[in-house]
């Protein structure tokens, strides 16, 4: 980027060297591409094959049992209900997470107040503390307030998401000039309206990226839901997968492999599709969020 090419006078041998390096680089890139895609490819192929075909041998070609596997996976309604539960929790918690993190970042960026610096430092420090460490107290609290087997403890805590806050703060600093806010004030807009109708649309790209991240991390979350959900009809997708795994281990579950691949496929593929649609923004967003200046 902006580099002057000193290579104009490069010798023949160094040009050969560069070409060799380039060939090896592409070979390596193709290798990691296969590494990343092959498990998912295999999953999709296997979800179209019947149990008998799967036990008989390996094949890279799809078969015609997608429909019957799908029906089996949806059969007792357990997976479908779990997907509905997961969708509800993930949608609600990702919206909460992004909206309130943006609000907090906006508050700290736009206003001057005594505890501003402290508030920022505090969030930076707690960002490094893993949630598992406080799980004992969290589960104790949830059961004391009889919130077990409800979705509240999976949704409400996402209002305080330090990493999302940090990302929004970085973005607001670069994309939201104070002049805009002051102009809104002059026009008589109150502070909440300025935030909701003027600031939020301006930071929408950042919100969209974080919405996807927050959604997938909630959709994929296994540890916390497994501790507070025990009723079968309240299960989320990862709990269903885990239940299936223990059932296979104890010999209780049907060993229908087509069914098994289909369940895993249904848990993964929605996220993959959304990712492919918005990947352009995501890959750029990762770096912005994680590396300070």
């Amino acid at each position: 980027m902006g580099t002057t090419h000193i290579s104009t006078g490069e010798s023949k041998s160094s040009r050969v060297q560069t070409n060799t390096a380039r060939v090896f680089s592409y070979i390596f890139l193709v290798f990691v591409t296969i590494l990343s895609l092959f498990p998912i490819f295999l999953l999709i192929i296997n979800s179209t094959r019947s149990n008998a075909q799967l036990s008989n041998g390996f094949s890279l070609l799809p078969s015609t049992y997608f429909g019957s596997n799908f029906q089996k996976a949806m059969g007792n309604g357990g997976l479908l209900r779990a997907m509905g539960n997961s969708l509800l929790i993930a949608a609600a918690s990702s919206i909460f997470s992004v909206y309130f993190s943006a609000m907090t970042a906006y508050g700290i960026h736009v206003y001057d107040f005594k505890l501003k610096k402290f508030a920022f430092t505090f969030i930076m420090v707690i960002m490094m503390i893993p949630t598992q460490i406080s799980a004992v107290g969290f589960v104790d609290l949830v059961f004391k307030f009889k919130l077990n087997n409800t979705y509240w403890p999976l949704i409400i805590p996402s209002i305080a998401a330090p990493a999302v806050f940090f990302y929004m703060k970085q973005y607001i600093e670069s994309a939201l000039p104070m002049e805009v806010i002051e102009a809104a004030r002059v026009d008589g807009s109150n502070e909440f309206r300025t935030f909701n109708t003027i600031a939020l649309p301006m930071i929408f790209p950042a919100m969209a990226v974080q919405l996807i991240f927050a959604f997938t991390s909630s959709w994929n979350n296994f540890f916390t839901p497994a501790l507070i959900i025990s009723k079968a009809e309240r299960r989320t997708v990862p709990i269903v997968i885990s239940t299936l795994r223990s059932a296979v281990a104890s010999g209780g579950a049907s060993k229908d492999l087509g069914y098994l691949y289909m369940v895993v496929m249904l848990a993964i593929v929605p996220v993959v599709i959304v990712y492919i649609l918005v990947s352009k923004h995501i890959v750029g967003g990762v770096a912005l969020g994680a590396v300070k200046g």
Binding site: V32, N220, P238, R245, V283
Partner: peptide, 25 residues
């Protein structure tokens, strides 16, 4: 862009599902 998109994708996949897939494979 293609390569970066592809190598980042496994990060968004449910770890539980990934493990279940490997269990089957």
């Amino acid at each position: 862009r293609f390569f970066k998109t592809v190598i980042y994708m496994p990060n968004l996949i449910m770890a539980a599902s990934f493990a279940m897939l490997f269990f089957a494979l």
